Lab assay of single mutants.
Amino acid sequence: AVSDRLIGRKGVVMEAISPQNSALVKVDGETWRATSGTVLDVGEEVSVKAIEGVKLVVEKLE
């Protein structure tokens, strides 16, 4: 799938994300809905860990 190429890519949080709420991230110039197990604020850099349906699963870039 096209989205599989995004695993391992870096992105930027466009809307705050919490474990209860998905929000938008920008990866390679494209906007995607994403979820995370932690709270992520706007502007934080993230890494794509997986794809669940049409959502990216991201975590904060260390």
Rank of each mutant, 00 (worst) to 15 (best):
S3L: 14
A1G: 12
P19R: 07
V57A: 03
K49A: 08
E45K: 08
V54T: 14
L56H: 03
K55M: 15
V27A: 00
R9L: 14
A50Q: 06
V57E: 04
K49L: 13
K55Y: 15
P19L: 10
V27S: 01
K49G: 04
D41T: 14
K49Y: 07
A1L: 12
V57K: 05
S36D: 05
L40P: 02
K26T: 09
E62M: 12
D28M: 07
E52F: 09
W32K: 01
K10P: 10
I51A: 03
E62W: 12
G29C: 08
L24N: 05
A50L: 06
E45F: 13
V46K: 02
V27G: 02
I17Q: 14
V46P: 01
G37V: 13
L6H: 04
S3I: 11
D4P: 07
E30S: 06
Q20P: 14
S22C: 15
E45N: 07
I7Y: 03
E62I: 12
A16K: 12
L6Q: 02
L24G: 03
T31N: 08
E30A: 07
G37L: 13
L24C: 09
L40W: 02
L56Q: 00
D4V: 09
K49E: 04
W32F: 14
G37C: 14
L6M: 07
E30M: 10
G29M: 04
A1M: 12
V58L: 04
T38A: 10
K49R: 09
L40Q: 01
V46F: 06
E45P: 07
D41W: 13
R33Q: 14
V58Y: 01
G43E: 01
S3F: 11
E52S: 10
D4T: 10
G29D: 07
D4I: 11
G37F: 13
E52Y: 08
V57Q: 05
V39C: 13
G43T: 02
D28K: 00
T38W: 08
T38F: 09
R33I: 14
V13P: 00
V54R: 09
N21L: 09
G53H: 03
S36A: 09
I17A: 15
K55P: 02
D41Y: 15
K26H: 08
A1K: 11
E62G: 12
G8R: 00
V42E: 06
W32D: 03
V25L: 03
A50P: 00
D41P: 06
V54G: 15
S22G: 12
W32V: 03
V42K: 08
R5S: 09
V2H: 10
V13R: 00
R5C: 13
I17D: 13
I51L: 07
T35H: 06
V27F: 03
V12T: 08
V13E: 01
V42Y: 05
E59T: 08
A1W: 12
R5T: 08
G29K: 05
V39A: 12
V46M: 01
L61P: 05
S47F: 15
K60V: 06
L40V: 06
A16G: 08
W32A: 02
V13W: 02
V2L: 13
L24M: 09
K55H: 15
V46W: 01
Q20K: 10
S18P: 08
W32E: 03
S18C: 10
I17T: 15
V57L: 08
A34Q: 01
